[in-house]
Design a protein around this nucleic acid. Structure first.
Lengths: 119, 119
DNA sequence: TGAATACTTGAAGAAATTCTCAATTGTTCA
DNA sequence: TGAACAATTGAGAATTTCTTCAAGTATTCA
């Protein structure tokens, strides 16, 4: 029994749903980077970064290689870079075009509550 | 102080990261639908669906209108449909092209563990 | 060998999300 | 009005995810 596609999608999006993981993917979008550099750019504890890298690794969207004492990460395939570009494009469009999403993210209270019949 | 973009992105993806929410968005991609229909298509308890609809509503990516006793949901804007299409395209590509992600989602153990130097 | 560096893992508590079920609201219609 | 239906909300338990810190592995180099 195959995992239903909608569930695979949900897991995929959930996997993207963490600020550190997003930043890593965007940094790797520029090309492979050693952990050292990611660490410097993102500025969190090494162990926290490692944990998030592990999540991405388990999902198979990044790969790591070790050379001597430094480990370098890269996006697993060009599709991933495409995805990140698409996500960026669509999201900035949405953030620009519709205040609504921005408001939601900024915690402005919901103007759309269960519709009262006065409309 | 604006919410950093990478955090807005993370929250957005997290919001998408639930099978019921994905299904709702895909169904609404075909056009507005009354809760009754969503309920029939998805087949979960009414209250669970309502809660997930509330998440989407709070994020501002769907809107609801009431007519008599039935409430109808629709995507908040065309951008949302675009996003769902893009996500579908990219994900099916990825699922088709790279076994790796599929494996990860199917719980096949990680072949990429911290690289041992035998490579 | 052993000290030092780079990175990863494990585990426990904190925090956020999800589920379930009871209660509530809004609407229709007899 | 009040019974019946559609949908939403609230609250607590169950589950998942995150954070943090201590411990572990791999590699270099003296």
């Amino acid at each position: 029994m195959p995992v239903p596609l909608y569930q695979a999608k949900a897991e995929f999006f959930r996997m993207l749903g963490h600020p550190v993981r997003i930043r890593v993917l965007e940094l790797l979008g520029e090309g492979p980077k050693p952990v050292r550099d990611l660490l410097a750019d993102i500025g969190i504890e090494a162990s926290s970064l490692s944990q998030q890298l592990a999540v991405l690794r388990r999902a198979g969207i990044v790969v790591s290689t070790r050379e001597g004492t430094t480990v370098t990460y890269a996006l697993a395939g060009p599709d991933v870079a495409d995805l990140m570009r698409a996500a960026r494009r669509i999201l900035t469009e949405m953030l620009a075009g519709q205040t609504v999403l921005l408001d939601a993210l900024l915690d402005v209270p919901d103007p759309q509550r269960p519709p009262t019949a006065d409309a």
